[in-house]
Design a protein around this nucleic acid. Sequence first.
DNA 1: CTATTTGTCTATCTAATTACTAGAGTATAT
DNA 2: ATATACTCTAGTAATTAGATAGACAAATAG
Lengths: 152, 152
Amino acid sequence: MLNNKVKYALKALLHLAREYGKGPVLIADLAEQERIPQKFLEAILLELRNHGMLASKKGKGGGYCLNMNPDLISLGRVIRLLEGPLAPLPCVSQTRYERCAECVDEAACGLRMVMKEVRDATARILDSETLTDVLKRMEHARAEPVAAMFQI
Amino acid sequence: MLNNKVKYALKALLHLAREYGKGPVLIADLAEQERIPQKFLEAILLELRNHGMLASKKGKGGGYCLNMNPDLISLGRVIRLLEGPLAPLPCVSQTRYERCAECVDEAACGLRMVMKEVRDATARILDSETLTDVLKRMEHARAEPVAAMFQI
DNA sequence: CTATTTGTCTATCTAATTACTAGAGTATAT
DNA sequence: ATATACTCTAGTAATTAGATAGACAAATAG
């Protein structure tokens, strides 16, 4: 399960991706429109900025904006930045491999083989899906709402 | 990331699956051979027993054994039992759906669509892979060790 | 029937993490 | 100057992780 921090970060980034190229967005607006606790959001945005993913501007007319093109930011990248590896076990992580302390024979560990498949399947999705891709999905969903079928 | 509790549980269950039909296994033996802290393992086995997955026998010649055929126990089932849903967000869980408190329009949430795909991919693997399947993988790996290639 | 073995269960503990909040400080535009 | 808006250091309450101690209960061998 993703924690709230990552979820809020992704929602905020999607919001900023939608406004990409239109100048800075106020934390307060972001917090209100995405319904995220403002002070918590502040901390998250700051962290993303310190990692170079966001840029900020102080003072009147200030705010936050993406520091790179939204099609360079994959969901996997954000999750790894704020939460850590996508892998369900550290011994199958590509980015932060760690041996299981208690493991007797890693090469013959059946659990590891299955978890490697899970990691690969997860990474295949999350590393290929960028903010731009997700925005496109959202527009598409708004254009053809499935719910409409039940609202005739 | 799976926590140690689940990892230990899965390792213990695989061990018990290997001994299935051969009578009870001592906690002490399990703990030693799988290198799991014994008292922690006790608590885990007790929980699995209280959920009906294991059976226990007190006194001399006692111990723990599987309470059902190992090909009825999928990794997904164990993870859900001890840790919760496989889904990365509660709003895409099949078994324990929960709405995101802050979500404005769930049907149009792009994040949700992607996470649904992740959940489905994960569940497809973990719900089909049983203890028996994992044991087969392990035997296979021991029969044809990849490492042998580098040890000539 | 009793000593020994082995699982059961309650209670506790520390450390880390999560999810926030307060409030003082700093930079900027006008 | 001054209002606006981000920065940053603390701190806190609640939960989870990862154990450990020790009394207790049941079963069996002899």
